[in-house]
Design a protein around this nucleic acid. Sequence first.
DNA 1: TCTGGAAGTTACAGACCGGTAACACCCTAG
DNA 2: CTAGGGTGTTACCGGTCTGTAACTTCCAGA
Lengths: 193, 193
Amino acid sequence: MTDGVAERSRPRDRILETAQDMFHKHGIKGVGVDAITEAAGTNKMTLYRHFESKDELIIECLRATAAKASRIWDEFEAQHPGDKLAQLHAWVHKASEMLSADCRGCDMANAAVELSETDHPARRVIKELKEAQREKLVALCRDAGIGQAELLADTLSLLLEGARVSMQSVGSEGPSAQFVRMAESLIASFRAR
Amino acid sequence: MTDGVAERSRPRDRILETAQDMFHKHGIKGVGVDAITEAAGTNKMTLYRHFESKDELIIECLRATAAKASRIWDEFEAQHPGDKLAQLHAWVHKASEMLSADCRGCDMANAAVELSETDHPARRVIKELKEAQREKLVALCRDAGIGQAELLADTLSLLLEGARVSMQSVGSEGPSAQFVRMAESLIASFRAR
DNA sequence: TCTGGAAGTTACAGACCGGTAACACCCTAG
DNA sequence: CTAGGGTGTTACCGGTCTGTAACTTCCAGA
């Protein structure tokens, strides 16, 4: 009984995609490898032929998620070629879209919360990927002609990160409902300097 | 071999305090009841005589944590009686203090991330406690004479929530390092309106 | 001193976890 | 047609988890 994800692609790809989805929905510690392989229409042995451990699978999932996010940035560039300020507004808009009612937040941040062991191999990967995303946002702000680009980028980052975690504790009617308004007025005030 | 927490208080109190500490440090799913009772200098049977399940213990821990946070607000009032604006700045200062290097974030937010089951009994408690905290911050902003009190309170909430989760993924040198600066200039700009 | 309840101890049930071994199968490249 | 690699199947290992049963020990209050 294969589910929606289990198209006739290669087992490794099905496992990776299914694991991303299940880790996102149920958390990393909330889903076992048996459940992943079953949902992917395969079995545990095949998983362990392609990934040396569950931790490795977690890391690959995080990298894949980051790669998907990176593709969204390419869309911003395609939709507003050269117009960095428009791309920044597109970022705000896209971010607010992802704050839908059943939002489960950022996979990397959630993983950092769940994997509390300070020496967990996924932690350095999370840090690397998050730092890369931060650099991209800083560059976008800078190229959009904003003076204190780092400060704006960091503020927007914290607002989004906070909105995603707030949604999970108080729901979509909480503080996160005002995210767009906060972000837009922030950008306006930074531009006015 | 009793540890630091295991003073000669009653077992229930020791369990509650130890569980708070261990849930905070290692996460809810990262610590079992056996480990809690051992660290509390007691045993599993005693735990289950005082708490009907691990879920009940989790909920009691969250309530206790919220009660501790509430006591900090009393300190603000004691330190700056009647001066709500000073209390708001004290809130910012206290929040930044808690963003120390090994910060593990907000217990309620972390629990919401870990307990992904939508019908988990702790989720409604988390929502209630978080909404109460939000109301307190809104009231503080309003009493400090700020016009758009709800918006400021929600923005500060998201910034703090974001800072706490950001610390866990990128560390204390990330965006959260600018939290005080962001919060203070936010308050200033709201007061200028 | 006696007694009753709280707490400690040991053992266990039943489920799930990550990970592995041994073997059967199928499908494609040569 | 055949050989071999990728895949599926079943069973298993040792460990951990929440939760319970049955029993013993301790201690405070009458």
